[in-house]
Simulated assay, not measured.
Amino acid sequence: MSAPRLSAVLWDMDGTLVDTEPYWMAAETPLVERFGGTWSHEQALGLVGLGLEDSARIFQDAGVRMGVRDIIDHLTDDVMGQLTDKGVPFRPGARELLASLRAAGIKTGLVTMSMRRMADTVVDLIDFEAFDVVIAGDESTRPKPFPDPYLQACEALGVSPDETVAIEDSPNGLRSAVASGAAVIGVPLMVSIAGAGAHAVWSTLEGRTAEDVASFHAAHHANRHTTTEETRP
């Protein structure tokens, strides 16, 4: 059986495409403190890559006396305000790699646990048509680390998971992408991704091109095929 070709690259947003994690953390601390609680950097790191509803319940456990949806809306509004005031901090090489993929005719999807209105804000600030599809946190059937968001993106793009590469920065995101059947590149930022299942780890996207992603995808499936052949009884 021939190896699948690379048809699409699926991107996480917060921490992978854009370095917005500090914006989220800056929104979280005053929210908890408003209700008399405390919020540590370690607690904030524990939310990286987690679905917004799960995060909101953690804030409730920390003493925030608001409904889940109200917490999500409050944090999203705060982060969007910071994006307006401070700009969108794209991670090094991310925009350039996106442009390279588009030029190569490879489909792209954004798979994020942020709300759709925030994802649209970020996408609209990219100066070219960067994504064929966006799957946001308020649209996924189940959040990361379940595979649903990535499977939904594949369905929307009309590709199978083994035709895709996913790029992620968090353990939850990596587990979601790996479970979907994609070939997965981890690009760590704020938290360790050791043991989360990434098929390759790149320290940065800077200098990377569509050719690099395609080569990784081909090598990943060649290695899988070789391993299968070697272990077949």
Results as ranks from 00 to 15, higher is better:
L75Y: 04
M113Y: 06
T204L: 08
M113D: 10
E211L: 11
D12Y: 02
F131I: 03
A130F: 09
E211C: 03
P145L: 01
V48P: 02
R95V: 15
H220S: 10
L10M: 07
W39T: 03
A177H: 04
L52R: 08
F131L: 01
E96Y: 07
A218F: 13
A219D: 14
P233W: 03
R116N: 09
R91E: 07
M190A: 15
D70R: 11
F216M: 05
L6W: 01
A44C: 14
D148R: 04
N172A: 15
E96T: 07
L189F: 11
R116A: 11
L52P: 00
Q82C: 03
L157G: 04
E33M: 11
E230F: 14
T228R: 15
P89D: 07
A194Y: 08
R95L: 15
M13H: 09
R34N: 10
L17I: 01
K107L: 15
V178D: 08
L10E: 02
M118T: 07
H225C: 13
V122R: 02
E21N: 11
L110A: 05
M66N: 09
T209N: 12
I126P: 02
A8T: 02
V123K: 09
S7C: 12
A222N: 12
A153W: 00
R5D: 13
A166E: 03
V178R: 12
V111G: 11
D14W: 02
G105Y: 06
W202N: 02
G173M: 01
E230I: 13
G137L: 06
H221D: 09
A218C: 11
Q43T: 10
L10F: 05
D138G: 09
G49W: 03
T20D: 09
L17K: 03
Y150Q: 04
F216N: 07
E28P: 02
